[in-house]
Amino acid sequence: MEKILEKRSLQSWMKKLDSWTIYAPRKDGSERWNYGIAQNDSVGLNFTVTTLPAKALVFPQREVFLEFLKTVEESQETLKVNEVIPGKNPVVIFGVRPCDARAVSLLDRVFSGDFVDPYYWARRKQTVLVGLACDTPPWENCFCLSTEGSPHSEEGLDVLLTDLGDKYFVKTLTENGEKLVNLAKGLFKEPRLEDKKKAKAVHAEAEKKIVRRVKRAKKDLAAKLKGLFDSPLWDDESMSCIRCGICTYLCPSCHCFDINDEVDSVSPLRGKRVRTWDNCQFPDFTMHSSGHNPRPDKASRLRQRLFHKFQYFVEIYDKTMCTGCGRCISLCPVGIDIINVLDKVSDHGS
């Protein structure tokens, strides 16, 4: 359904959703936006883009997988291992940019399949995403139009808000989304024809403002990449990489992780197994314990990042594993620009 919500009623809407924990972008003392629990204070949606994508709320940077306890009595050991599946905690995230919502829908695919990830889905099933269409690209490196998306894409979202100045055009996209609106019926008005027209105009205008494009589209680019596996291009493009991993850590669709044990007490042995984000740009990501490394240099790791996003993922899911958010370009300390690299791939040999 489509509705109109006055901006001054946003706070009242959030208050009505008291059985959910509400997250919204906030500045938290630094210059960067990030999601935080919305208090009664001045939570509005006047943000640009969060540094950490919304994925961090369904696939946290660090989470406890298991708790273990090993006791020894009269030289007989007992071992207890318990899963720590996230409990009941329904969440609504306000202010999700469409690129980040699409990325969550990519993660949905990854964490499904033959082995369903119970930790991811425990959170994901309780999470409702209220998106905010971009009327202006948050930064100059946005390129969602080249990754099957748009500044008003609905994929992965439950509700899409479009800023019409003093009010939001509200479009519910799922049952969960409708539920949120129905809980505060009195706050919403029926849209007039001109509201609908204005929302469309905002969407069209926003598309025009996105200046960056990747030359080749999904399949075409994937095919071109495939032929360039052994190209010296990867050496050249990765030369300046300082292996900080920002491109992958801040990527809304990157999902590689590490699993490690943390010991709280030695006797009895008590501790936890923890999952943390990991990063394919680090040498030890693929290093065998023998020291052999099948992906030993920066070139092969940059290639892996791009091939995974623009070729392998396309082969598996027929989707690009990049939603064009631009974080890896804008925040790379040495200015490696994924669009430029992809365009060099596109132009190669032509």
């Binding site: 399949g113 033959d114 082995f115 990830d117 590689c256 992780f257 699993i259 990991d278 693929t286 995974h308």
Partner: peptide
């Protein structure tokens, strides 16, 4: 790391 096709290693 995971053995079940998720962790990416």
């Amino acid at each position: 790391k995971c053995g079940v096709g998720k962790c990416g290693h």
